[in-house]
Amino acid sequence: MSVLNSEDIGKRIRDIRLGLSASKKVSLEAFGQLIIPPASKGLVQTWEKGNSLPQKERLEQIAQIGNVSIAYLLYGKEINGYGERIRKIREEKFCVSPEIFGRLFDPIVSPERVEAWENENALPNWQEIMRISSLTNLSHKAILFGMEEPLLEHHTRMLNPDIEFEKTQAALRNANLDTSGYFNSDFIFLETNRLRLAQLSDPDNVSDYTDYLGATTFVFGIGDEPLTSNLFETIEDEIDDSIDKINRILEKRKAMLLDKYKEN
């Protein structure tokens, strides 16, 4: 968070006092009477000169009188909170200086830029936000807006299909693929998207593509049950059957998609 500048705060308090009336200036004494408990003329004067700061309750009242936020009164700008959250991540989670924290990024971020984030004089770009997200297991909404939305522990990487799609499309454009290569890549995209949509719409009945995954999970999730040779062979047979089933489905879908390509 930015260091408080008492002189600047005093100037903003003075601007609030002088801006209360268009016809005549509100005196130091009259301004002090607007605050509960009332502040003396001398105390208001020390605030405006920056020799002291009002207590929290009085700061809140002065901000309300001036129709400004506490953030504006203290810092001269609106503070959204992301700077303080990044600072806490750096200090409390990693216990490092801005310089060391900046080295966690690729490309490396200068300590001045880290401090600019924390003072809210700069906003991390999307790549930097995603890096902070991957380091902390927090979503970008939690970092930027304070929304309590931690990622699931078993999803330790950010899943952003839009960004990954853009990266993949750029890679394909630079790969100089022939027609067959583009067809194969599009086929994979379409099938993956179809699976995602099916899982979203009817997760309990998506079996065509998940039998193999289920069998594989079974292998690693047996728990305390002893893994005998017979049990292993049974699991192996289930996996083989699932692979064959998936391959048959994919070949059929691939043939249909190829026909569409030929028509176009």
Rank of each mutant, 00 (worst) to 15 (best):
E84C: 09
E115R: 14
L53P: 05
E48P: 09
L73H: 07
E112G: 10
N80V: 13
N67L: 08
K77T: 05
P111E: 04
K56A: 09
E92I: 14
I62G: 06
E78I: 12
S52C: 11
E78D: 13
V96N: 05
L74G: 00
P54Q: 11
E92H: 14
P54E: 06
L74S: 07
V109E: 07
T46E: 00
I70N: 00
S52D: 11
R87E: 14
F94V: 10
Q64H: 13
L74D: 03
K93N: 15
S97D: 08
K49R: 15
E99L: 14
E99Q: 13
L43W: 11
Y72F: 15
G81Q: 05
F105A: 04
I86H: 00
Y82A: 01
E78Y: 07
Q45W: 13
P54D: 11
K77H: 13
E60Y: 10
L104W: 07
S69H: 07
A116I: 07
V96A: 10
V114F: 00
R87K: 15
V44S: 05
E60N: 11
E84A: 14
F105I: 08
E91A: 12
Q45I: 03
E84G: 05
G76C: 04
E60G: 06
F101V: 02
E91S: 12
R113T: 13
F94E: 07
L53F: 05
K77M: 13
E57L: 11
I108D: 00
I70Q: 01
R90I: 02
I62L: 10
F105E: 00
A63V: 12
E78H: 07
K77L: 01
L73K: 04
G66I: 00
K88F: 01
V96T: 11
P98R: 13
K88H: 10
A63G: 12
Y75C: 08
E84M: 05
L104T: 03
E78R: 06
I89F: 05
G50F: 15
L74M: 12
R85M: 02
C95T: 13
G50Q: 04
I79T: 02
F105S: 07
I65H: 10
R87Q: 15
G76N: 00
Q45S: 15
N67E: 15
I70C: 01
L73S: 04
Q45H: 14
A71C: 06
D106V: 04
E57V: 12
K93F: 14
E92N: 15
I65E: 14
C95K: 15
V68T: 11
I108S: 11
G76H: 10
Q61R: 09
E112L: 11
V44M: 12
L74C: 06
F101R: 03
